[in-house]
Design a protein around this nucleic acid. Structure first.
Length: 607
DNA sequence: AGTATTATGACCTTGGTT
DNA sequence: AACCAAGGTCATAATACT
């Protein structure tokens, strides 16, 4: 697979190969970044007004905008308003490039990507090249006119009556190409309703090829004629899509917003059947180290678009942990890990409430249809509430009337209450939460942590089985152990996941502000007889580029940078300060990308 | 002073109807 | 298109209690 990066093939990483973005980054890092960074580190405490301003600057530049434009955008929009800055930058860029060229708007940095395609074919672009040139080959250009003419009816229909949804259009179209309808449906679900025809076709094609190599399945013979037809349709469709996008959103909006997939299983989960999937990473994301970023899936509008933009335009993988355990946990993960040949932690955890909490079975009324818990949060239901529920139920001998059932069920869902006796519901205990999240029993117990803090720490953590499934591909890549930089690591979900996968932890730098969490992780580290080195860092701002360089020099770089930045400004449960990415804690996201970029640069220079 | 308890909506998505 | 209704969400801050 294309992203497999081992130490011995470090020469052809993309940062050294080409393009202006990288050059700019390089120049910037060797030059002014030092001053701005040190200024930032030095004055961060004092100029509390707008936190990571120079970090912002640096990473807008890192994202490919020129320094002067970034400076201008920040000056005009203020440091606090990130969206405005982004909009301004996108506007500048759009104005700079020719606005008449529809295809240039397709990707946010279309011109650079075109350059990439013509210049470099290494790494990830294999499949892309296939799709663009080989597969739907030849008469790409010549046939556009008569293709347009012979498809006018179709086009006109769509534009005038517009009754077909975009999804249905894609479905019909791909079905027309000879793909089975069921497969197309799966592809659309898996790639998301907003996925492009290219993505869908890639998906379907990969599935077919995978099956072709599978002895039990006899693939129908390929039909070359269809593919050339496809080339024509594809061209027209793409143009059409661009037109519609431009019409709907205007020039300055970004691409289609990221949508949540249904079902929310990302590139697959061990418990659900799915087609094999291959993905093509953006060029900029294919370079060591591996990174893995996590946050809540249901963030305010546009947040994931922004996050994705800062993480090299890698699309998030949205996964609901209800496919791994008995509790839901809808999260987005942006990573550059391979997605083939994943395997789950064994034994598979119980996936229903019934199995996970067998003692509740006896008391579970048949009018409570829940089989999964909702998201495990940081706060639990109050005693007053469970008392109210008990009293509401005690008035009736058998089944309560519907309105009481609804009240009880609503509260049970909202607070994840389970049945522990006749007419008695209760919130989960901390050890039950530990188990559901995949942590060893008593992971967060004792050592001076309060019960309240246990719930808080657990509620803020990874679901270990889910993350481990994604990280499982690292086991073959790093048989001798792995060097991890763990940001906002909390109670150490990432470390626990790697450990349970049997991947030796050679070297872990863990950044965590809360002392109770550091204690938990240190305690786990010692109890599991880890042979590697664990370095605690309290504040993420202590991880300056100097410090990073020092650490990298000492231990030879990092293999994996993993972390989820604080979500409390994004989470729906927050009634007070759901401020999006500009929130106080959410801004730590920019520390994540600062550190990721910094490590990439330092490690890049070493090679 | 630290911990436990409690009350406190809003935003987004989805699905349905008008 | 517009509207509505419903479900779900890695939380915060005031208050009470040790």
């Amino acid at each position: 697979m294309t992203g497999n990066i081992t130490d011995n093939e470090s020469e052809n990483f993309s940062w050294s190969s080409d393009d202006d973005v990288e050059k700019e980054k390089e120049v910037f890092d060797t030059g002014s970044s030092l001053t701005t960074l040190s200024a930032f580190n030095g004055t961060a405490e004092g100029s509390s007004s707008s936190g990571p301003s120079s970090t912002l600057f640096r990473h807008f530049v890192g994202a490919g905008f020129s320094e002067s434009l970034v400076a201008k955008a920040i000056e005009e929009n203020g440091e606090g308003n990130m969206d405005s800055i982004l909009n301004a930058l996108l506007t500048y860029s759009a104005l700079e490039s020719s606005p008449s060229d529809a295809l240039d708007i397709e990707k946010s940095s279309a011109t650079e990507q075109n350059g990439d395609l013509s210049k470099t074919n290494n790494g990830h672009s294999d499949q892309k090249i296939d799709a663009d040139s080989d597969f739907w080959s030849s008469d790409y250009d010549e046939n556009i006119p008569d293709d347009l003419s012979d498809s006018d009816s179709c086009l006109g229909m769509e534009e005038t009556c517009g009754s077909l949804s975009e999804k249905d259009q894609k479905l019909l179209f791909l079905a027309d190409m000879g793909y089975p309808v069921e497969e197309v449906k799966i592809a659309i679900e898996r790639c998301g309703p907003e996925s492009s025809l290219e993505e869908l076709a890639d998906f379907l094609c990969a599935a077919q090829m995978a099956r072709a190599s599978d002895a039990t399945y006899v693939d129908p013979p390929a039909k070359p004629k269809l593919y050339s037809d496809y080339a024509k349709h594809k061209k027209r469709k793409l143009l059409e899509y661009e037109m519609r996008k431009k019409k709907q959103k205007g020039l300055f909006e970004d691409d289609e917003p990221i949508r949540l997939p249904k079902p929310m299983i990302g590139f697959g989960v061990p418990t659900e059947p799915c087609l094999p999937f291959r993905r093509t990473l953006p060029e900029a994301a294919i370079a060591p180290p591996y990174f893995y970023y996590e946050n809540v899936a249901l963030a305010p509008k546009g947040v994931w678009d922004t996050i994705s933009r800062f993480l090299y335009d890698v699309q998030p993988e949205f996964v609901d942990s209800k496919y791994f355990c008995a509790a839901a946990r809808k999260r987005g993960y942006i990573h550059n890990l391979p997605v083939e040949n994943r395997f789950p932690l064994l034994p598979l955890p119980p996936r229903t409430i019934n199995e996970a909490l067998p003692l509740t079975r006896k008391w579970w009324p048949d009018w409570d249809p829940r089989t999964k818990l909702n998201c495990l949060q940081t706060a639990i239901g109050s005693a007053k509430l469970t008392e109210r529920i008990r009293k509401a139920l005690e008035d009736y001998e058998g089944d309560p009337p519907d309105h009481v059932k609804k009240y009880v069920l609503d509260e049970c869902r909202k607070w994840n209450l389970v049945w522990v006796g006749r007419n008695k519901v209760a919130p989960l205990e901390p050890d039950e939460v530990e188990m559901l999240l995949g942590f060893p029993r008593n992971h967060t117990r004792g050592g001076g942590i309060s019960r309240t803090d246990r719930f808080k720490s657990l509620g803020n953590s990874f679901q270990v089985d889910t993350v481990a499934y994604h990280l499982s591909v690292l086991k073959d890549l790093f048989p001798g152990g792995i060097k991890v930089l763990s940001l906002f690591s909390g109670i150490g979900g990432a470390e626990v996941a790697l450990h349970r996968l049997g991947i030796p932890l050679k070297f872990v730098v863990s950044v965590e502000l809360a002392e109770v969490n550091r204690n938990i992780q240190r305690s786990w580290w010692e109890q599991t007889n880890q042979k590697g080195i664990l370095i605690d860092i309290v504040d993420v701002q202590q991880l300056t580029s100097d410090r990073l360089e020092q650490l990298i020099n000492k231990f030879g770089g990092f293999d994996l940078i993993i972390g989820g930045s604080p979500c409390n400004n994004l989470a729906g449960s927050n009634r007070v300060s759901r401020d999006g990415l500009e929130g106080k804690e959410s801004s730590l996201f920019f520390e994540y990308i600062r550190i990721l970029d910094s490590v990439k640069c330092i490690m890049g220079k070493k090679r």
